[in-house]
Design a protein around this nucleic acid. Sequence first.
DNA 1: TATGAATGAGTTTTCATTCAT
DNA 2: AATGAATGAAAACTCATTCAT
Lengths: 210, 210, 210, 210
Amino acid sequence: MTAEVTGLRADARRNRDQIVAAAKQWFAVQGPDVPMEEIARAAGVGVGTLYRRFPDREALIRAVVRESLTISVAEARAALAEEPTAWQALVRVLRQSRELRLIVRLTTAAQPAKTIVKDDEESSELRRAMIEVLDNVVHAAQAEGALRTDVDTGDVSMLFTLLVRPVPLQDEETAELARERCTALVLDGLRAHTGTPLPGRPLTAADVGL
Amino acid sequence: MTAEVTGLRADARRNRDQIVAAAKQWFAVQGPDVPMEEIARAAGVGVGTLYRRFPDREALIRAVVRESLTISVAEARAALAEEPTAWQALVRVLRQSRELRLIVRLTTAAQPAKTIVKDDEESSELRRAMIEVLDNVVHAAQAEGALRTDVDTGDVSMLFTLLVRPVPLQDEETAELARERCTALVLDGLRAHTGTPLPGRPLTAADVGL
Amino acid sequence: MTAEVTGLRADARRNRDQIVAAAKQWFAVQGPDVPMEEIARAAGVGVGTLYRRFPDREALIRAVVRESLTISVAEARAALAEEPTAWQALVRVLRQSRELRLIVRLTTAAQPAKTIVKDDEESSELRRAMIEVLDNVVHAAQAEGALRTDVDTGDVSMLFTLLVRPVPLQDEETAELARERCTALVLDGLRAHTGTPLPGRPLTAADVGL
Amino acid sequence: MTAEVTGLRADARRNRDQIVAAAKQWFAVQGPDVPMEEIARAAGVGVGTLYRRFPDREALIRAVVRESLTISVAEARAALAEEPTAWQALVRVLRQSRELRLIVRLTTAAQPAKTIVKDDEESSELRRAMIEVLDNVVHAAQAEGALRTDVDTGDVSMLFTLLVRPVPLQDEETAELARERCTALVLDGLRAHTGTPLPGRPLTAADVGL
DNA sequence: TATGAATGAGTTTTCATTCAT
DNA sequence: AATGAATGAAAACTCATTCAT
């Protein structure tokens, strides 16, 4: 995200950004296996250009993940800084999920992607930053008495991961509503006071590998 | 599930079943794009045999979905019949999720699958049967006072769909625990009495298209 | 050469042989980089067929080298067995060079091929067999007093390697004659006493195109 | 070598020379197919600059061949002028083979190169000059009684061509020795009476890796 | 009928060459 | 004039599907 893109000529830089943007869109709808040529076309460049910038599919996925993670971390930090309560920050993070959705989509695909993030130092660092923010939010929300205390960051991110998955419904409007309601319901389940104790022990971020 | 498989010689029938079984296994781990030859090999037959029975990949997916749906419906009915309360039936359905997981995996894959079910009369019928059972369970659980009344079958199946998605965690043990805890937490959210009212209106089965 | 090709259906076997034959021809004239599709076309099959039998270019090269080495070893043994003197056997080996030429061509190419032979057990074994025969021929020829005694098998095979290289001359007839004369001259150099007349006529610069 | 390079600004001229030098190095190790960008990088210029100077690969090869031929001719003339006997001049030419080796490498490559020289007037002229010198050397050596009289320049250059080919041996030291011994042996074959001892020691099969 | 061979279209990737900066 | 970005055609390889045995 830094050395990699600095010092490009203006037009090259623009192309690079268009490629990443196109990749994000296609990855979001089709997963990480979309034909490279499709992405190139969507970016308005030839395949060759794509390959000059990203030597192979992995490199492109890596770039997309980095960018999405960067944005996600920033969004989470903003939520924590701006919302009056940690609980509200939690809710906001959960709703600001466009980028997260993409990351989950990519890192969840059967074939290639989990490893890509694991093996990339920059991604790993971003991942750590993300965990840190989440930890803060979760523990603060518990300190507020808003979040049940038998969960930990791992549980919360697990639930995020599930909620964030693409919901393949015919019309986007219903899909949106469904997502809203599921989110609300899960938040309800996360609220303090509630019901039955959860099985096992709170899962930490380390437990779930995020 | 009927005309299609009746009147086959015993060995042909056995082949067919092995193919479907192999497909279920591969689809479960790799999604609907596994090489046909992989499936054939796992079934212990040649590709030719596979294609004699299932003219193309769609036909095979359709057969798998039908079989899984059939089992799922039966399981759901059994739960309703055998559990003392509708709530417990609901919980059991949610936990007996192996077949459901496969269906979700197949019908949410980007490329081919949603349509397959839509366009197949037998699957549609099974789907309707499934909805009927779920409707019964849901409304009975609400009548019992166990399930919150601002949800409907669509919400419930939506949540099922989410929970049932494969959770890509390193070790299977933690994955299982995570799944358990998420399920418990969602069930908590579904319990009557609870928290904040959900946005919008209860989603029916028709709303979510299952 | 054995397990690999046994038990193929008659037609498959025929195809396999045609592919190897086509590869030998193309490799001989163009080196190991000929487009796979060219080879497939020459063999009268689709690329797919070629790749079914030989998973990648290396596998094909390996098969060709094995076959050529096998033939070369057999030829060398036949020469040793049938010629009245070891010297004559040496001469015959040096002239029966079609297969050897191919091997040299392949194992000499800059890019890929040397390693292929090194890493292949069957090829290595054949190579050892070849060396053994050559050792026998060389030492017997020295014992006869025909071959100078300040050389050994390495020198001889080095000279073979050089002589066997493709001579890119316009017309094949002159090329053949040139090869003959070079061979004769080198044999002269290898003789214990030296001095036989060369066949044909002196070749002018124009004859050989340099 | 003349019109083409005259009238270039000093820095342009320097670029051109660096490109040719880089090309010579790469061609010598990888043959005429090295990626143009590799050559440009080695020359410390962009591809664009390379293409400004040499419209396509052929033009570059042509330039390299011209330069090497020019040097070779000069070397051969120097040998003839400076050595006490024509035979010694012949030997020296055969040993001063770096440039010759490159020419042979380029002009014997399968794909493009033979024609390039044929179709280039300047190269053809150099070729003729080369032949003339060789003719002189050869005939003078025969007049001296040193070179056998049943060969002519074509035979000699054929032998040069063979000896000059890259010898793919593991370590460069052995390769050098092998080349020396082969050269000596061929010279022996070329001698009017024959019979000098070879340098070094007999090479075993293991020595040369075949 | 079962088998596995053959086909060929679809994808990824590379690189010579052209062109904008 | 120099640079390096963009292009697109070519080559390797995979796999769904058809067909001969």
